[in-house]
Simulated assay, not measured.
Amino acid sequence: MELLLSAALPKTGDDEYEPCLSGLDFLPDGRLVAVDNHNDKCIVLNDQLQRLGKPYKFKIKPLSVLCVSHGALCVTFGSKKVVLLLSVSTDNVIKLTRKIKTSSEFDSICCMSPYHMVVSMRDDPRHVRMLSVDGVESNFDKLVFAKKTYKAHESKCTYVQSKNTLILTDKKAHTVYMYDTVMGTSKAVTNEDIQKPIGACVGPGDTVLVCSANKHSIVHMSVNGEIIGTYPVDMRFPNSICVSKDDTRLAVSNCVEGIRKLQLYKLSPATS
């Protein structure tokens, strides 16, 4: 990982609070989309981390964002039990296209297939569920989860499609769970470099990248749970992470008051 850009996140003219980017994802054309949990916004940024167009203002606090297809976004809102679908035009106009009411509280969201997403749960023993683009919810019937529930910001998910592997972080237990959704098997991964793991995403070569908040670093893992490498980042307590569709860039942010940052890193081919 090579640091390309680092941007502080001060209040801008229309912000009520210091921004907290709780969710990040790249559009296929390389633009970065972020949701600001503290100011109830969705923003688009270019490769210089400069804002493009006018932010979309929500009425409630967003948690996570996923680019589900070219120019289409899906945003979760936790306890409000709703998912919003947005469109982003090539000239950075964001519009609401659909509202999905959900039966459960969704936290993070990731892509499982062109038609299905995976969402992590709050206050629910199922931990993760599937959500179709049509708004149909379903369970991972083969998976057995630990007998616990997660509160806000305690667990995030990602999904490695080619390996049918679901990744779930457990911040309090300093553990990354890996589930084979076809076989129904699981593995709990702990390591001295995994301390308060939270945000996670799919990395190059169907690997997994996890924010190790208390180590101020990114842990690179295989879907078998092997630690490939650990990369310190120039920020305190990294929280949200995503990788571009071409696997060449990584974006990471934190939500620490007074020292909030958004950073862009170059991923070298050696990391795949």
Rank of each mutant, 00 (worst) to 15 (best):
N46T: 08
Q48D: 13
L49W: 09
L49A: 03
R51W: 00
R51Q: 08
R51S: 05
L52N: 05
G53W: 11
G53F: 12
K54L: 10
K54E: 14
K54T: 11
P55V: 11
Y56P: 01
Y56L: 11
Y56C: 05
K57D: 10
K57N: 12
F58N: 08
F58G: 04
F58E: 12
K59C: 05
K59S: 15
K59H: 14
K59A: 13
K59E: 14
I60N: 10
K61P: 02
P62Q: 06
L63W: 07
S64Q: 07
V65W: 05
V65F: 02
L66R: 14
V68G: 02
S69K: 00
H70F: 10
H70D: 15
G71I: 11
G71A: 04
A72E: 07
A72T: 09
A72W: 04
L73G: 01
L73P: 01
C74Q: 07
C74T: 05
C74Y: 03
T76F: 02
T76Q: 04
G78T: 13
G78Q: 07
K80V: 09
K80D: 15
K80T: 11
K81N: 08
V82E: 02
V83R: 02
V83Y: 04
V83L: 12
L84W: 06
L84H: 00
L84K: 08
L85S: 08
L85Q: 07
S87F: 09
S87L: 05
S87A: 14
V88L: 07
S89E: 07
T90H: 04
T90C: 10
D91A: 10
D91Y: 06
N92A: 15
N92M: 10
V93C: 15
I94D: 06
I94A: 12
I94N: 09
K95D: 13
K95Y: 03
T97F: 04
T97V: 13
T97D: 03
R98F: 07
K99R: 15
K99W: 06
I100A: 08
I100S: 00
K101D: 14
K101M: 12
K101S: 15
T102D: 00
S103E: 05
S103N: 03
S104R: 15
S104Q: 12
S104D: 09
E105Y: 07
E105I: 10
S108I: 07
I109S: 03
I109V: 04
C110P: 10
C110L: 06
C111K: 07
C111E: 06
M112K: 04
S113V: 00
Y115C: 05
H116C: 00
V118T: 07
V118D: 00
D123S: 14
D123I: 08
D123P: 00
D124G: 12
D124F: 11
P125D: 10
R126L: 09
H127R: 13
V128E: 05
V128Y: 08
V128C: 04
V128T: 03
R129H: 12
R129Q: 09
M130F: 04
L131S: 03
L131C: 01
V133Y: 03
V133L: 15
